[in-house]
Each structure stands twice: as C-alpha cells, then as structure tokens.
Design a protein around this nucleic acid. Sequence first.
DNA 1: TTGTAGGCGTTATCAG
DNA 2: CTGATAACGCCTACAA
Lengths: 335, 335
Amino acid sequence: MATIFDVAREAGVGIGTVSRVLNGSPLVSEATRQRVEDAITRLRYRPSSVARAFGRRRTERLEVLVPHFVEPFFFELLMGIEDALADADSEYSLHIRAMTDAADRDRVLGECCRKNNVDGVLVLWTPPTEGFVKRLERDRVPAVLVNASHPSLPSVAVDHDRSAAQAVEYCARIGHRRIALVDRFIDPFGQSGAGACQAGYRAAMSVAGAPVVAGYERVVPLTAESAAEAVTHLLEMPEPPTAILVGSDVQAIGALQAARARGRQVPRDLSLVAYNENSVSRYLGLTTIRVPLRVLARQGLQLLLQRVQEPNLAASVTYLDTELVVRGTCAPPRA
Amino acid sequence: MATIFDVAREAGVGIGTVSRVLNGSPLVSEATRQRVEDAITRLRYRPSSVARAFGRRRTERLEVLVPHFVEPFFFELLMGIEDALADADSEYSLHIRAMTDAADRDRVLGECCRKNNVDGVLVLWTPPTEGFVKRLERDRVPAVLVNASHPSLPSVAVDHDRSAAQAVEYCARIGHRRIALVDRFIDPFGQSGAGACQAGYRAAMSVAGAPVVAGYERVVPLTAESAAEAVTHLLEMPEPPTAILVGSDVQAIGALQAARARGRQVPRDLSLVAYNENSVSRYLGLTTIRVPLRVLARQGLQLLLQRVQEPNLAASVTYLDTELVVRGTCAPPRA
DNA sequence: TTGTAGGCGTTATCAG
DNA sequence: CTGATAACGCCTACAA
C-alpha cells in the first residue's frame, strides 16, 4: 500500500504538501496540486483512515443509542444516518446499541463512550438521564437527540403536539366529537408521566370544541398489550369514543386487535389514527401520522457532525413537520 | 488522558509489559500483572482504540452489505451482529450499506472497501458477483456471507430447501395435495433464475406423493405486487391450489392481499405458509417458517471475526435450522 | 507557497 | 519473563 511518503516522492514534493492537497487546503498552488493529484492516481494511493484518525486525535466513530421499540422503523432511521454520512463523505463508522427496558437504558447510557471511544453520540427516541448529560459535558462528548429533548442538548424532533392536533382536526372535520387518545409516555421506557401527544390532543380538542371526556385520555406503556387494554376500557365506557388517536405504531396494532376482539369493525364502528409509517401500517391500510423518519435521522446526524467539528455551538432545537396520511381506518361516525 | 507510558511509570515497568497485560499475554508474571492492573485502575487508564488499531495495522471496522428488502427484519440482524461484537468485546464498528436494486448492488459491491478501509465484509442475503469476490481475494479482505452462498466464500445460512420441505410436509399432513409455491429468485435482485425454495419444494412434493402441477411453481420478483399477481394467476387456474407456500415475508403480504381481493378467506378457502418472522406476520397470525435471524447474523459475524484473525481458514458452510410456527393461516382443505 | 521535523499511543521485535 | 526501541502513516507547527 502506498503511503503519503510515496506520493510525495512521486510528485517531487514534501509530505506536508500532499497532506494539504488531501485535506483541500487553499495553501497549495494549482500546479502543485495537479502534480500531487496525478501522483495519487498513478500510485492508486488512498490515505489510511486509521492513521488519519490517529493523527487528528479523533476516533471517527459515532455511537447510536436506540430504544428497542424503534424496531419497526429502524431501517429508515439508519438510511437517514447513512445519507448524512454520505453527504459529508466522512469516514465515520457506527456503534449501535439497543436498549430493551429502563434498566437496560441505564446500563447503556452508563457505558456509553466508556468502553469505546467515540467522537459523538446520537440518541434516538430516548430522553437522556441527568447523569448521562452531565457525563457527556464533563467528557466533552457532543451529543444530539432525535425525537427527544433536553434543555442543554441540541435536538431534531417532530412536534408531537402539532401532529396530534392534525389528527384531532381531521377526525373533527369528518364529524367526530367523541375522540379519545391512547398515548405512550414521553419516555418510551416510562411507566408514568405525560403522554407524548397529550398536550396537542387537548389543545386541538378545545379548538374543535369537542369535550375531553373523563377517561378519554389514556397514557399507557409502550406495548401492544397495554394499548389493547386501554382500548378495551374505552369501548366499555357508557359513552365510548367514536375515534381514537394512537400515539405509536406498536400501540396501534394493539388497538386494532382490541377493536377486533370486541367485535368493532374499523372504520365502520370505530375510527383509528395511527402513528409512524412501516410495513404494518401500510399493509393494514392505517390512516396514519407520518413521521419523516429518514429526514429526522439525517438532520440529527448532520447536526452531530457539525458539533463534532465545532463543539461550542449553542444547543438548538429543530422541529420537522408530520403529515397525515389518509387511508382506510377513519370514517364519519355513524348517526 | 493517561497513556501507556503513564501506566508503565506508575507500575515501575516498561511499556512492553503494560501492553502484554492489556492484551492478556501469558508472558507476564502474576505479581507484575497485578501491579500493572493496579496502576491502570489508579490512573483510570483506558487504551486508545484508535492508537490500537493503528499499531495493529487494522481498521477495527467492518462493512455490512444489505439488500433493501431486509428492512422488515433488519433490526433483528443488527442485534445479532451486536451480540457477536459484545461476545468478543471487540472495538469493531460498522459501515452499513443498503442496496436498493441490481444497479445499486453493483455500485455498492464495486465501492465496498474502496473508500473506507475495513477489516472485513459481512454480506447479508445477497449472492456476491464474481468481480466482487475476485477483488476481495486480491485485496485480501475477508468476507462472510449470511443467507447466500459462493463456492469460495464461507457462509452461514438456513437451508431453504429443508425449510420448504417442512412447510410442504405440514400442508400434506393436514390433508393438502394441491400445494403451490410462490417463490423469490435466489438473487433478491434477480429477474430470473431458480427459486430459493424451489428444489426443496419439489423434493418434498415428491416425497409426499403430491403432483407438481404445471404452473404451480411461480418464481417471481421480490415484491408484494409480483406475488399478488402470481397468486391471482394460481387462483384462476382450473384446478387452483388449496395451499400456497410463499418464499418471503414481503411476498406473503402480496399473497394475502391477492387472496382477499379474489374473495378467498384464509385459511378457510386457502392455506398460506409465510416466511420469516416480523411484526407483520406476528400481527396477522401467519403460519410461518421462522428463520433464526439473530443467530444467523451472530454466527456470521463470529465467523468473520475469526477470519479477520486467521485469514487462511478454508471456506466453510454452516446451515441453521428453521422452525415451522403454526398460527392461523393453515387449515385442512375443504372437501 | 513549500519542506522538515516532531508527535500521536500503540504493537511488535529484539536482546537480555 | 522483561525492557528498550523501532515502526505505523498521518497531521501540524514552524521554518524557509
């Protein structure tokens, strides 16, 4: 394998010049640059990324933290990440860590950057713990959140409240007034706390002049089972909802199963709006709030790369728009 | 950050000794090892993985090549990969590249290892092209195939023929004789060639004494649409099959849609056996051939790590067993 | 605008 | 068993 020395010799210059050419420095005359580049092609030289990382005192590695429930749409996220890496044609490679539950989350956040040295961390769909944030700050490891937020960390996210509002507005427009919410906790591992879409749901209900009946808001753990149970409860109410907004795709499946189990036909007897796009929702023909997964991940990674280069940027928050995809699970309520 | 020199000074030894301790060499006396390890904890020393890679003349990076259709089960594969990395507690990080179609496959295979230096390549669900194999051999880059095969490359795979046989046997056992096959080409990007399960299907049909009716074998492109079309054709035959084995999960969805569109109820009018396990098949309650995705990926990566260390191992082929998961899409044929 | 020299933190190779 | 020392291939001053 040719090294930078070979190229320098071949081009009749010093290695410093070759290095400058390699890194696109303006401090090289056009003629010299040309000669160096010729030498590079002639020798089929390619710089060693490891030696580069070593010299730059970087690792050229990023860590990606994902909760397990992203499984149905993780591929899209990954494509977004690869998009961003390709854009920047960087040599970064990835350490991907999944978190199965709250205990595992704590373990993974605790180990993050410890064993493996990384230049930055991308946290997907998971509110970071305080200890984790502190440690990142102490160790000067830049991090970016995707679809999560923290006061001192930059993030790219969809506005869950606005998305919920989109769904409620749509249901109201086609005639529903008894609209319920089956939501997940903001923290995907959480067993309590506010729902991810709750505020938006309330606001939109109030705008639509629809009453938020007691018991219509059900914030439950992020599993199909919990959602199924919640829907069952809703359907057993004296005044059951005619439409339900479900805050995650995993829960949407549970909701469908529960409706089916109670003999309700969707959308004839019950309208459903689901969340995210994946093979299930597409196959099932769910009316859905589409989250721009690929773009979300891409922008998150771009932001991270930026901060790897300039660690002192202020924490920014970017919101991306969701889109309501109308398919077959909503219909006007029956008189 | 403490370096190996600091540790050596602290422990009163040479850096060579520290390095030996770090790498678990037996050539260190117990007493010395202890002193070094104490120094390490005292100094909170952690070796720089980049410097390690540099010194070892490795990149500690692997490239993972995936066809786009693995999307529904990619997360499982990734978990298997991470399992293997954790087992070996290696510092390897990943470059993941998706291939959307045949042209993209050629591009990706062509670029593989070129831009990014990697220690090895894991190829998932994609038969490699000859040129690709040649280049890997020339550049001495070890590669392992997962669910694909090539005479000169090691691989870990499920035996599609045996899996198909499992499905056929099951259908025959519950009384079917008119059993058809909707299969994908061995090459997921292919538009022709043999089907992945075709041989097994034929063999099992012959064992079961069931006739392979002309037109019962339909090897079609790996899309829901193609599969739907194939099923429609099958259902329009004068003697339509009573059971269909579908060679991939993507195609299974198309098959279900086609059956639904032709007014056939599954499993009352038509039995279906699908392939792979994912959220769709679980939700839909498909009777399915379960492929041990996580184990497959894990063993593939283990094999790759082995070959990174000892590049001269002979190419081996390992087969893993599939399992027939009986759920709700098969029933005895109606008299 | 260019060349030179020093440094980065390991591993590996030798003597001892 | 152990310690010294030479790579490893690049980046980055600094000097010219």
